[in-house]
Computed example of a mutant assay.
Amino acid sequence: MIPVLLADDDAMIRSGVRVILAADPEIEVVAEAADGRTAVTLARAHRPRVALLDIRMPILDGLAAASEIRRHAPDTAILMLTTFGEDDYIARALGDGVSGFLLKASDPRELLAGVRAAADGGAYLSPRVARRVIELGGARMARGPAARDRTGMLTGREREVLALVGAGLSNAEIGRRLFLVEGTVKSYVSTIFSRLGVRNRVQAAIVAYDAGLVDEAG
């Protein structure tokens, strides 16, 4: 079972997301909040596997709440719920340890896939928001040819792992795909982060997208 904390100040959004998540028998919404401060309190109490946070909330916005949750419940993966036009919030989130971004108007299958990816230690970028996330990250991360130069420093196996990180796979899923034990994948991921100068899987995914590795991975 994947316990999820859902936080959004719009009751209708919360209700809709809850219904979608309830369709998956392996996902359970264990707590709900209408503001960031309550979300932090509930995360400390319930220790959910995934916290699904509206990027804009009262008292504490989603990013401030995410920072507090990571401090008090470090094993909780953070997914941000966003809409088009929230570029400032998305840009701030790129430097933090979020596991991904989901558009509020996403296909329900994307929401379920994102929660599962985050729960398994992967990263997830909703396809319709991915391009905007990549554009915003471009000011701080290499784009196009420059990204290919950066990934050119990696070994062939490291590029394979990076491509699958960019595709949202967890370490366990990458291990199964490449016939590697999970500990070996974790070591590869750590080395890739260090060599690329990125802090988290979302930043690594952006480099992978920019370098064209995700397309190559199919």
Rank of each mutant, 00 (worst) to 15 (best):
R143T: 12
R116S: 02
F179I: 03
V115Y: 00
D96G: 09
I27Q: 12
R176S: 02
P48E: 02
G212D: 04
D54R: 05
V50P: 00
A34P: 11
I69Q: 10
V165D: 03
T82A: 08
H46L: 02
V198T: 00
G97D: 13
R128Q: 14
V29G: 10
M1D: 14
A217W: 10
V133Q: 01
A7W: 15
G183E: 15
P3V: 12
L112D: 08
V189S: 05
R159N: 10
I13L: 07
P108I: 01
A123G: 06
S194T: 01
A45G: 01
G218Y: 02
I69E: 07
G156T: 14
P74C: 10
V207L: 05
V181Y: 13
A172K: 04
A105E: 14
A204R: 03
R37E: 08
F101L: 06
P25E: 13
D96Q: 13
A167R: 11
A64C: 11
R157T: 11
E28V: 14
G175V: 04
R201C: 04
D54P: 05
L178R: 01
L154F: 13
R71Q: 07
R157E: 11
R159A: 08
F101M: 04
G156D: 13
A123V: 11
A43D: 06
L180E: 06
T76N: 04
I2F: 13
V189Q: 09
M153T: 07
D54C: 05
L169E: 01
A205K: 13
R201V: 03
E182C: 06
T151I: 15
R157D: 09
G62I: 15
E173W: 03
A163W: 00
L21F: 12
V17R: 06
G16K: 07
A147E: 09
N200T: 00
D87L: 11
E173R: 07
R116P: 01
V4K: 09
S187L: 12
S190H: 06
D120G: 02
S126F: 14
D107L: 09
I20S: 05
A39C: 14
I174R: 06
E32G: 10
I2T: 13
M12R: 05
F101S: 05
P145M: 15
V202C: 03
S15K: 06
G97K: 14
E182Q: 12
K104P: 03
V17H: 07
L180K: 11
A65W: 15
V189A: 08
S106V: 11
M80F: 06
G152H: 12
A217Y: 08
D35R: 15
I90M: 11
I69T: 10
E110Q: 13
D75R: 07
R201L: 10
L52K: 13
G197W: 04
I192T: 02
A23R: 11
V214H: 00
L164S: 01
M12W: 03
R116D: 02
E68Q: 13
